[in-house]
Design a protein around this nucleic acid. Structure first.
Lengths: 218, 218
DNA sequence: CGAGTCTATATTGTCGACACTTTTCGAAAT
DNA sequence: ATTTCGAAAAGTGTCGACAATATAGACTCG
């Protein structure tokens, strides 16, 4: 679906590393040793370096010259800042999507919603994460703004996932989130830009509060 | 001021390439040959590759596996999309800056404005570009949001400069832009978030219209 | 005993060579 | 003359080795 097909060895290494970081197999804040990773993954250091460069573009690691790369540290204030920009950008995406999505894309979004409804009704809440990502993904793509798409998908989305996964956000908030999704799609169907933006911003704000509450409770 | 001090050879190559691209010495749309650049700049291909990777992060070049990198092509619709996100992000930056800048930073901003006024009064409009960049830079930094700062400074600012430079935006619109700057600073001084955001968005919208007009006339 | 310095070690930065892919160009067949 | 195939050329991807820098530890001096 996201059509991220690995071609080169650096691609594969990048995807493996990204997965390990997002899912916490490589601890946040830990150092990424080029030599260590090259022996672990059986590739040259040049490949690992390329992969780390791309991880830096994703904001998943931070590199310093002559010192090395570290996985980003997760923090409450980092979460707040991340969701501040996410709210603004995805709100904008919803507004643009209300304008720029084709009728076919809108009806496809409605179909997606229906299938989610079936799954939720049958209690398959474990599908929620992938479905949620897909929902947001389609609206982001629907904005048809290349810079916005790049910033969200390359720049912050994997970091958002990292927060969600590592704070154990698997499954809750299914039903209310579903209703929020439904209203957003309605607004887009009616080509109501302002409402679509407002509902999306609110949706993401709720999501942030939900995560922040978990983060407090820890 | 921007404290971009080159450390490694890759840094220097990156800065040189970025300058050449932004200022048009390397034509937009042209191919970047690794071997060619490595002989031209007297560095190894690994260094050039690293530099090109960073240029890709800046959205100044596009890379494809096994094919190579090309300088981005400038287009009217690209400009529109770029300024759409810029308006949203810098509007947000102004809003956050109204909240998060210290009193010292605000007074520093006022000082900057005064010195611009002196220069404008003396007809030194050629300083406008650097001054404009500095003005926006301070407000972006004043947001204190690391993701927002990174997206604007690493993600789109050099591309904005590329459009401006290559379309010959050196100097016009000085006096009106100065007034717009002044009003934005007033709003920030009064800690009026909403007004600051609105004025900044409008300021950038005007700027876009100005550039688009030049682009039409060509 | 602590602070500072110097050496040894480990890690990152850079390089040139080789492997693989893409493109180019010419020859052959229709 | 046009199309197709294949070999040569050019370019990117990957590798291991060396150079430069940072870190850790021992040693000296106060």
């Amino acid at each position: 679906m996201l059509s991220e097909q690995p071609i080169t060895s650096a691609d594969k290494t990048f995807f493996r590393l990204r997965k390990d970081i997002v899912e916490g197999q490589i601890a946040s804040g830990s150092k990424l040793s080029e030599t260590e990773l090259s022996t672990k993954y059986q590739v040259s250091r040049a490949v690992v370096r390329e992969a780390i460069n791309r991880l830096e573009t994703c904001n998943l690691v931070e590199r310093k010259a002559n010192i090395g790369a570290r996985v980003v540290a997760l923090s409450p204030q980092g979460l707040v800042q991340l969701y501040q920009v996410r709210e603004s950008l995805e709100g904008m995406a919803a507004r643009l999507a209300a304008n720029n999505m084709t009728d076919e894309e809108v009806s496809g979004l409605n179909d997606l919603l229906s299938s989610h409804f079936q799954e939720v009704k049958q209690g398959q809440s474990y599908y929620q994460e992938a479905g949620d990502v897909d929902f947001h993904y389609r609206i982001i793509m629907g904005s048809k703004n290349q810079h916005l798409i790049s910033m969200l998908l390359n720049g912050i989305y994997h970091l958002v996932r990292m927060y969600r996964v590592q704070l154990g956000m698997a499954g809750p908030r299914v039903t209310t989130a579903f209703d929020e999704h439904r209203h957003i799609v309605q607004a887009i169907s009616h080509r109501d830009e302002e409402l679509a933006e407002m509902l999306m911003r609110r949706h993401i704000l709720y999501s942030k509060n939900n995560i922040a509450a978990k983060l407090e409770g820890k």
